[in-house]
Design a binder for these strands. Sequence first.
DNA 1: GGTAGGATGGGCT
DNA 2: GCCCATCCTACCC
Length: 187
Amino acid sequence: MILGRSFYDRPTVEVARDLLGKVIVLGAVAGRIVETEAYVGMHDGAAHASRGLTARTRVLFGPPGHAYVYFIYGMYHCLNLVAEAEGSPGCVLIRALEPVRGIGIMRRRRGVERLEALASGPGKLTVAMGIDLRWNGADVTEGRFTVRDDGMPLGGSIAAGPRIGIRKAVDWPLRFWVQGNRFVSRG
DNA sequence: GGTAGGATGGGCT
DNA sequence: GCCCATCCTACCC
């Protein structure tokens, strides 16, 4: 079943934890979320939203259940899902996926064979899924690009620790992953 | 097993 | 002009 608006219209940390195990589907390609990070809004120095409302962060201030995609390091894209009510700019960075469907397509897009290398990082997974700026602002509660609950168990407990690659609020334990899962970016 | 450095361009001060 | 929510390669234990 496709996750509806109410799933995302909750505190960002809850959404970040509950997204673990859910499946992102885009066309013929799908992957199970095994690692996320919460960016909790204007008071979070590491969050883009802490700079306020700009052309780039507009989607974050909009309604929940939409994709926030941005371009980073001149080469990569990162995928986030907007949480909390309109006007409250929380979002969840998707950091790693376990490939579920369209694995041949992912291998071709990534140019690597190893299953664990296809989507085990925020920049890798957008390449594997074919996500770029065209998907910024997309509604993920309907259409070709959705997030689904297929009822599969997590296969491990939820671990928490500091977020990766940031320089502010470095000690906040807002990174969540499935303990022991071989597809996370860092165990 | 590990890490240092470079690629590469948009956003914001 | 500086700062990135990254990844890959080269090189070193």
